[in-house]
Write a protein that binds this DNA or RNA. Structure first.
Lengths: 129, 129
DNA sequence: GTGGTATCGTTCGGACATGAACGATCCGTG
DNA sequence: CACGGATCGTTCATGTCCGAACGATACCAC
């Protein structure tokens, strides 16, 4: 809602790329928790990143664990991460403003009822924006 | 991401309930556009609302169009709408704050690169809260 | 009336995405 | 060494949701 599926997937791709740039040896479970998606979802996103050449599998170094991989950003992966980062920021700012407006509207709506909801929403809708 | 599926569906249910309370004779397409979901998605949500007794089908009055329905909130639908409204507001405020933090973080990140992204994000992360 | 166009609610294929599994591997304990 | 339990990447059934259809109905010009 107000966020299409493709936007959400772009968000997921960016978050995974960002996390992997910071630490290529994160597990899929750690990625899932940090990116706010499911384990299967990380696997799904990761496969797409690998197939499009943005990420390649490397050796896990810490204790040569045969189960684990290092997920290394390729040069094009780095470029894509930077590109997505700019789009991501611009989108989040738009979402932020839309959210502020929606909170303001709903807060006003709830003030007409018998619910002390304005206590929750204090500070919204006061400044020019 | 950072928004689970059930949250998104709850958002959709609330938005549809709110729109229908304001105008029960909205078409599914109008509901879709206003709620930011697809036509099929509205149908999906609407069916769930009808099956759980929150909405019932009424007669479309304007020109007794045989294709159309009025989607009328039942008493329990009104109660559920009020309940969801409070949860919705609280959740949106949390999302708002999380979004502000994420924008702030990303804006700082991008300042280290050669991209004038801070122009987009001016005004974030300057005040205390 | 007849034909064309627009919109109605509905359906459907397929893409996502989840949560719970799975086998493989690691590691500590005896 | 053997054995549990924890964790790895992966797979799967299931549910959610979109986008493009569909038939039915309304409207409008002729």
């Amino acid at each position: 809602m107000s966020v299409t599926r493709s936007k959400r997937q772009e968000d997921a791709r960016f978050r995974v790329l960002r996390l992997l740039q910071q630490n290529p040896e994160l597990s899929q479970r750690a990625l899932a928790e940090a990116a706010g998606i499911s384990v299967g979802g990380v696997h799904y996103v990761l496969n797409a990143l690998i197939e499009t050449g943005l990420v390649k599998l490397g050796n896990f170094t810490a204790a040569d664990d045969k189960r684990r991989y290092a997920y290394i950003l390729t040069p094009s992966g780095l470029a894509e991460k930077a590109r997505l980062g700019r789009r991501f920021l611009a989108r989040k700012i738009r979402e932020y403003e839309a959210l502020r407006d929606e909170i303001d509207t709903l807060s006003t709506e709830l003030q007409g009822s018998d619910v002390p909801a304005q206590a929750l929403a204090s500070g919204f809708g006061r400044s020019s924006g």
